[in-house]
Design a protein around this nucleic acid. Structure first.
Lengths: 318, 318
DNA sequence: TATATTTGCATAACTGATTATATAAATAGT
DNA sequence: ACTATTTATATAATCAGTTATGCAAATATA
């Protein structure tokens, strides 16, 4: 039985490498069959030159999707074989303008015949198969342009990991985590301020008993993230989103997003119309997160924190 | 616009190479993403070891479809990384029995998680596409096992070329070709005999006027092949297929087959029931052709030719 | 107009595979 | 029991691509 039906799609690269080898090996033999002194790897270069005429090395590289050194090497080989001539007229002495020689032009005719036979042979395979490889390749090229395989896997990883994350309400046993997770980032980028200690040492008194809430993110049942919503006595804002912290080891698992979403959902349930927050632009990922959650920059509200250089709000009744 | 939609399928190899590069580049980054110290090329080896346990280098190479030196190198790298251990117990000191170390086993768990994410990401691409690349690859692997791309192109070349071949009846202006084409192969492998000269110098008298026929194969309107059917006065055989010759330059274009088929068709139309021929086993391609045409070996008939060491017949009313 | 930057190409070193070949151990043949 | 052959692996050279870097010519900038 086939290895790849067992390995699964993780081995797509290996499978493709093997398959490509098979095709290119046969390609070399096909050129022999037609008695043309031609290396298969020359073909893309040869093709653009025979359709577009003279071109520079870099232009060819861009056209065929190879690196420039690769084209330099191929052109050298083709030059040695008498198929192309380089260093054609150009005022710009850096450029190496290449075009087919007469012999190269003659070869194009031969290659056209061969190309026809290959086209038919491959179409025969395609018609025997139910899944069209040629079309599938075109589609994949397009789909990967839109969103690379890496990005797709990254997304899937985040999604899977966020399934292992639970957001739970604060309990007193989480106080040490609430404190240490916040202390960590604050003292990394800034320094602890009096208002910090007040809230972190007595979250129940400072936050919960004044009408706020705190949420804890558990990753595989370990507390790794926290976030508070503080009740504000303000004509405009109902709550402040504050004291959000995620352990560095689990960053990138969407935990901040889950905490933020929980706060917003809860505020909505409690009938709030606007949420406020304060941050610092040095914390770029945090700002980005807030923007993703829908927060927008505002100015003018007074704040007890020195480190605050940006204020944002989210309007829940838009 | 995409290069490959212009080049056509001749560039399948190039397209695959580029595409494979894209996938494997991302694969390397995906391993980084999961923080596993693992090279993508190790995966097939790793996979068979983690499912099958201990194996020798050659066994692994066979399983994964790589060359043995390739596996030797991969195993060395994996050994350096502490993932596998080689030279395990074996009486046969030539064999290098390899298996996963404890660290390698632990890695398998991590890789399984990663593999799951990749599977989902790839399935996402497959579901966005209308042509299934994964299935297409499996089908092509199978179809190419049945009949390689080279063989298919070869077949198509023959077919196309045989379309440029016309089989026409003998005319006197073809006498020099009839003579020289036959002289060429006879004097290459044997020497001309009296019966040869008789027929080649006077084909009209010797063959046509005694009730036989001669056919000439024109390739691009140039005579390149000849074949005679000689009327026999024999209780068993109606005609002898003889003096078949094809110019070396156009051999492999199915011309012998076309000449033979014309003779058989004509004999059938003339009501013949058995065709006879003489040849020599040194002419392997000719014998193979006769067999393809349906001729079978027989013995016992007298012949004027020294070079004859095999006699064959074709029964038309079988 | 002198200097800094950008552009176009070439070269070198590396990568992941291959084939060809060497070498040692095991097995077969006499 | 000795030699010839086969088997299992390792090593070297090659291939078709890559990235990194160097260098000279052209262009932009002060």
């Amino acid at each position: 039985m086939n290895l790849f039906s067992k390995t699964g799609k993780m081995a797509l690269g290996s499978r493709l490498r093997l398959f490509t080898g098979r095709i290119t090996d046969d390609a070399a033999k096909i050129y022999e069959l037609y008695n043309v002194d031609f290396s298969p790897k020359w073909f893309p270069v040869f093709f653009v030159l025979s359709t577009d005429g003279a071109k520079t090395i870099t232009e060819i590289a861009d056209d065929i999707g190879h690196s420039q050194p690769s084209v330099t090497k191929i052109i050298k080989e083709m030059e040695a074989a008498g198929i192309v001539a380089g260093n054609q007229k150009s005022k710009d002495k850096r450029r190496n303008v290449v075009s087919l020689t007469e012999a190269g032009g003659a070869l194009a005719e031969k290659v056209k015949v061969q190309s026809g036979d290959i086209e038919v042979a491959i179409d025969e395979i395609i018609s025997e198969a139910t899944h069209n490889l040629w079309e599938a390749l075109a589609e994949w090229e397009y789909l990967l342009d839109q969103k690379s395989l890496l990005t797709r896997v990254q997304g899937q990883k985040k999604l899977r990991e966020s399934r292992d994350v639970q957001i739970v309400p604060y309990e007193d046993r989480y106080q040490t985590h609430f404190r240490s997770l916040n202390e960590q980032w604050i003292s990394t980028y800034f320094k602890m301020e009096p208002s910090d200690s007040l809230a972190l040492d007595n979250p129940r008194e400072a936050i919960l008993e004044t009408g706020g809430k705190i949420f804890v993110a558990l990753y595989e049942n370990v507390p790794v993230g926290v976030c508070a919503m503080i009740k504000l006595e303000d004509p405009e804002y109902d709550y402040e989103l504050a004291k959000m912290a995620v352990a560095p080891a689990v960053q990138g698992k969407n935990i901040g997003m889950l905490l933020g979403e929980t706060v917003i959902k809860t505020a909505r349930e409690l009938g709030a119309s606007k949420i406020y927050l304060e941050s610092n632009t040095i914390l770029a990922p945090a700002i980005k997160l807030y923007q993703k959650l829908g927060f927008q920059k505002v100015v003018g509200r007074a704040t007890p924190y020195e480190r605050c250089n940006i204020q944002m709000e989210l309007n829940l009744k838009g």
